[in-house]
Amino acid sequence: MPVDHKRINGPENTIPYKLYTKLNVKSFKEALQDAVKNGVRNDKRKLDEHRRIFMKTDIVSQAKGSAYIEIGNTKVVVSVFDPREIPNKNEYSLNGELYCEFKFAPFSCPKRRLHQQDAEEKQNSIVMKQALEPAVCRHEFPNFQVDVYALVLENDGSALSAAITCAGLALAQAGIPMFDIITSVTIGIQGDLKLLDPMLHEETLCYTSINKNSKTGKNSHGIVILSLLNTHQQVTEFYQVGSLDIDDIEECTKVLTEANKVVVPLVEKCLAKHVIKGVKESSQ
C-alpha cells in the first residue's frame, strides 16, 4: 500500500496508561506463576489445549473470497481479491504470486497501532506469504497475483496463526486452486512449560528469558509458528523466535503437527457448509 504522507498520526510519544498501574509492577516470575497454576491456565485450559475456534466464510461481499476466524478473543478477517496482472514487473513469471498484507487494526492491541505497517506487521506479511504460497497451485495463474489482506480486529495471541488459517479458508472460498487445506498453530515456550495456542499475556512471557541468570532452571524460551498442509504432511512455514535447543524444537514440531490435525476438520466443515449453502441457493 502506498504510504500516505499527509495523514497525521497523532503524537507518537503516547503510551498506554497500563504502564503506570500496579499490575505492571509484577515481575516476570510472578506473572508466570499467575498464568499457569498446576498445569492449568488462566482460562481453565490445559497446557496442550486449543481455545475455542469459530470460522465463517463469505464475510466481505466486495471480495472474491473472505473468511473470519475467532480463536478465543483473537479475531481476524481475511479477504482475497481476484487475480490481476503483477504490477511493475518486466519479466514474465511462470508462477503466479501471492501478495499478502497483514495489519493490526489501530484498536486491536493494548497499545494503539498506527495506520502504516510497522516492522512487525511487515514481517508477519512475509511469514504469511511464505506459509500460503506452497499451498496454492501457482502455476495455474502465471504472471498474475492474488491479493490477500488480513486484518486483525482483536489480538489476544496467536494472531499470525489465526490469519494464516483464515487466509487458507478465504483462498479456498475464492476458488483459487489449492493443493491442500492450510492450517497454522502457535506454541509458546518458557522454561519447561510449553503453552499451545498462547494468549497475549502468555506470548509476552515467552519472549524474554526469565531464568537467565539462574544456573538450575532451563532457560529456553520462544514462540514457534508451524503451518502445515495436513494430507501431504508438508510444513510450509516454520517460524521461530527466542532461544531454544534442538530437543525443544523437535518436541514442539511434534506437538504442533498434532495440534494442526485438530484444526483441519473445522476448516473442512466450514468449507462444506459454504458449498451446501451455494448448492441450495442455485437450486432455488
Binding site: V127, Q130, E133, V224, Y239, V241, L244, I246
Partner: peptide, 12 residues
C-alpha cells in the same frame, strides 16, 4: 541454541 528459524523461498 536456535534464536530464529525462518523458512523462505516458496517450498515446503
Amino acid at each position: 541454541k536456535f534464536s530464529t528459524v525462518f523458512q523462505t523461498g516458496g517450498g515446503s
